[in-house]
Simulated scan of single mutants.
Amino acid sequence: MHQYTESATVTVSVPGPTLGVVGGGQLGRMLAEAASPLGVDVVVLDPTPDCPAATVADQIVGAFDDPDAMAELAARADVLTFEIELADPDLLDELAAEEEIEVHPSPDALRTIEDKLIQKDTFGEAGIPIPPFHRVDDADDLRAALDEFGSVMLKARTGGYDGRGNVPVTDPDDAEAAIEEVGGPAMAEAFVDFERELSVIGVRGDDEIRTFPVGENVHEAEILRETIVPARTTDDVLDEADRVAREVLSHLPGRGVFGIELFETSEGEVLVNEVAPRPHNSGHWTIEGALSSQFEQHVRAVLGWPLGATDRRAPTVMANILGTVDEPRAAHLGGLDDLLSESGVSLHWYGKEQVRPLRKMGHLTAVGDTDLDVLLSRARDLRDGLHFE
């Protein structure tokens, strides 16, 4: 492979190059689904045999930090990307040099983002608005943060997702237990009195930045439940969210899609919460709700191809389908008749063989020129009518 060369004046033809993806979960699956119509083949590396992406892409079974498996991925691809922050940036840099293969987004962007403390330091030094935070190496550091901020969210610096690695702390007497629960280096972030949570899916191309319309996110137990587009806020806040997102993108090297989570404070400020160097759960609405999806945009961007339009087609609500079970078991989803009979509603099943409590198993989107509250209620009713048999 590696016959593919990229430049600002790249000439696109099909069949296209092969894209290698570190990670074969639902994001890898949807990347492959978006790549296929573009004539782009996808090969994924994932440690789980028959991972979700394996039905639509070739799979190499191997650990994300396995040099031999990563070298095989690079040998079979023309460009590398990743759909999970567990990708090793040092190994990606080595492959880029040894195999002469491009990696996007840049491993440097992954280094910045994978450690929440480095991420916050980088954005703070750049003047990007962020909540106050404090480095935490031990219980004394956490108590100092509590003394400064009153109450905090203690976050593991690496590896946390869907609320894992996050511990709210208000009492200094709980410092030791909280440190133990997080289980490693951490940072303490002051609680933000926010009006709503927002997100922007941004795309960095060769010489341009594009953003999708601002979404409003509804979380419960720190897991995303719904994304509503357009966000139900003022035009001034929408403009500021887009401005802040573009500022974030300008400080992250390499091409690709970035998910930028934001807080809208009760005073109307917009603060950066966290950034993901990949397609993001809050951007799944774009598959049906925008002129091009975040996944198509990521494929285009990492290959150096022209970007697509990011305009919204119509008001859209995305609702996650989570595991509503008490213990793990084989995944069989029922109650789909009403959902599939509803005009403007689409189902995305991730193909995971086992359902676990609150595991993301799929999502649905509801698109229509109607009141957003009505659309949200419809999506919730249809999602809540599903059950695992």
Results as ranks from 00 to 15, higher is better:
residue 215 G to E: 10
residue 218 V to D: 02
residue 219 H to Y: 05
residue 220 E to S: 14
residue 220 E to K: 09
residue 221 A to P: 00
residue 222 E to D: 14
residue 223 I to Y: 09
residue 224 L to S: 08
residue 224 L to F: 13
residue 228 I to F: 06
residue 228 I to T: 10
residue 229 V to Y: 12
residue 231 A to G: 12
residue 232 R to K: 13
residue 233 T to R: 06
residue 236 D to C: 02
residue 237 V to L: 13
residue 237 V to D: 02
residue 238 L to P: 00
residue 239 D to K: 03
residue 239 D to E: 15
residue 241 A to G: 00
residue 241 A to Q: 10
residue 242 D to V: 00
residue 243 R to G: 00
residue 244 V to N: 03
residue 245 A to Q: 00
residue 250 S to T: 09
residue 250 S to G: 05
residue 251 H to G: 06
residue 253 P to M: 06
residue 253 P to R: 05
residue 256 G to M: 06
residue 260 I to G: 02
residue 260 I to D: 07
residue 262 L to G: 04
residue 265 T to I: 15
residue 266 S to E: 15
residue 266 S to M: 13
residue 267 E to Y: 08
residue 268 G to C: 10
residue 268 G to Y: 14
residue 269 E to H: 07
residue 269 E to S: 11
residue 269 E to R: 12
residue 270 V to D: 07
residue 273 N to V: 06
residue 275 V to M: 11
residue 276 A to L: 09
residue 277 P to L: 00
residue 278 R to K: 03
residue 278 R to F: 06
residue 279 P to E: 07
residue 279 P to Y: 11
residue 280 H to M: 05
residue 283 G to Q: 03
residue 285 W to V: 04
residue 287 I to H: 04
residue 288 E to S: 12
residue 289 G to A: 03
residue 290 A to R: 01
residue 291 L to Y: 15
residue 292 S to V: 01
residue 292 S to F: 00
residue 292 S to Q: 10
residue 296 E to C: 05
residue 298 H to V: 08
residue 298 H to N: 05
residue 299 V to M: 09
residue 300 R to K: 07
residue 301 A to Y: 13
residue 303 L to Q: 08
residue 303 L to Y: 08
